[in-house]
């Protein structure tokens, strides 16, 4: 019981951390990779919430397809735009 709660806690903390990294990472490529990791962790979270159907869809869509689409876009934007990835404004 205790270990399960610890696992949940670990999962939630890593969810929040990957989300934060996806938003804060200077490098756009790294941000997208973090976002893909976030998608995979979401799939795990769905399993913990007794929702295997959503977990299946999230693993295929959230982590797989979204990642491909975003990475494709990153390489597209990068082509002659390297270094302009940092998106933080004040």
């Amino acid at each position: 019981m205790m270990t399960e709660l610890l696992l949940d806690l670990l999962l939630v903390v890593s969810l929040l951390l990957t989300a934060l990294c996806a938003l804060l990472a200077q490098d756009l490529f790294r941000a997208v990779v973090m976002f893909m990791a976030f998608g995979l962790l979401m799939a795990l979270a769905w399993v913990r919430l007794q929702a295997p159907d959503i977990a299946l869809a999230e693993a295929a869509l959230g982590a797989g397809l979204t990642g491909v689409l975003l990475l494709d876009a990153v390489s597209h934007f990068r082509q002659s735009d390297s270094g302009a990835g940092s998106g933080e404004s004040s």
């Binding site: 159907d53 869809a57 491909v68």
Partner: peptide, 24 residues
């Protein structure tokens, strides 16, 4: 996944996602 949807986890959405990923 499409066939499994009638009695366990699976269904049109997951199957469509996998099929879409195949196309990509």
């Amino acid at each position: 996944l499409l066939w499994a949807g009638s009695d366990r986890s699976g269904g049109a959405f997951q199957a469509g996602a996998v099929l879409g990923a195949t196309g990509v």
